[in-house]
Design a binder for these strands. Structure first.
Lengths: 189, 189
DNA sequence: CATGACTAGTCACTTCCATGACTATCATGG
DNA sequence: CCATGATAGTCATGGAAGTGACTAGTCATG
């Protein structure tokens, strides 16, 4: 039941089309949650059925019509009661960690490749988040924005995303260094 | 299909009973993956059926018999081919982030409670991981252990877990400070 | 001596999430 | 002129994960 609330939370700041939402959740630009387009569309349908969002058809020329969604009062109430309840603990759940856990029993070269790929992805994402933060705060310094800015929710979650990706990158590089060093100092093992 | 490999990876360093495994995955002590006991037992049954793990009954007195599992050669091969393949990108997926995303539209007090709870959990987990790391490296320094130690896989994943939980705690405290400051400087908004 | 916590699991049910395939139209580039 | 990529979605299916309930014996605590 969290995708529901993630969609509601993403819709809080202005109307979005299903397509925009779906893209944001797919790329993880809505960095606080991830979902495939099909899931997002399905969830929007359900949310509309429950009266938590309202959609309106927008006729476009030169491209398919779209539907813009906004959160209803009932939807906002729903989101508020969600926030009042305890958040489930979050766990890392990552293929790459499983692979590193097995590091001593598998091919080091392949593992270093995986780590290098991940480090690159993390760097890209961190860059994206950094730009996003810059866009949100505009001319202001971070401190000013967090004190006086209109909506800080998205900014704060983006900061978490940034820190997470930087943590990922640093850890990947650290593991690569360790594995390389071991390969050098104890070649056959 | 990742729980499979997580279980295999957890079993690499010595035999474990289903119960021990299940507990580790439930508490997240196997900090690189999380799963409920029922999932773990079910997965063990499947893995045994596929010949990737082998179980042996151990008769105990004073308590129920247990089954100890170890990874077979086929299981190791399976895990190696898993590690050779690209890891899926990982996404944060966290109720608390959804709640913070909605921060500007919900009750600040309740949100600060959630953040405080989470910060406490994160601190506990970080402490646990720190102790675990200490146990693994024993008398050696971290540098020595990572260079000369026998199995570094579990150590490295534990380091990631530690960094993640510290990141969580810092972020929670940061968000709390921001929200408190805003509540003070712009009370009705 | 009853209550709850620990060991060691199993069964059933539901909901969530992932994946692939499919329909359209329009704009852009080679 | 054809391929691609973006816009804007829908449908179907399977696998993964979450939830609750249940068995059954042992040990410690009040």
């Amino acid at each position: 039941m969290a995708l529901r609330h993630a969609v509601l939370a993403a819709l809080l700041d202005g109307e979005l089309s299903g397509y925009e939402l779906a893209k944001a959740f797919d790329l993880g630009v809505a960095n606080f949650w991830h979902a495939r387009p099909q899931q997002v569309y399905a969830e929007l349908t359900r949310l509309e059925g429950d009266g938590f969002v309202a959609g309106r058809e927008v006729v476009q020329e030169g491209r398919p019509n779209k539907r813009l969604f906004r959160v209803t009062d009932a939807g906002l109430a729903q989101l508020q009661s969600f926030t009042a309840a305890a958040a489930k603990p979050s766990f890392i759940r990552d293929d790459l960690l499983v692979q590193v856990q097995a590091a001593d029993h598998v091919d080091t070269g392949a593992l270093i490749e995986r780590l290098t790929e991940r480090a690159a992805v993390a760097r890209e994402k961190a860059g994206l988040f950094t730009r996003l933060l810059g866009t949100m705060r505009g001319e202001r310094t971070e401190e000013e924005f967090l004190r006086d800015g209109g909506r800080v929710g998205p900014y704060l979650t983006c900061q978490r995303g940034l820190a997470f990706e930087e943590g990922n990158r640093e850890w990947c590089e650290h593991v690569i260094a360790v594995l390389r060093d071991r390969a050098r100092t104890r070649p056959d093992d």
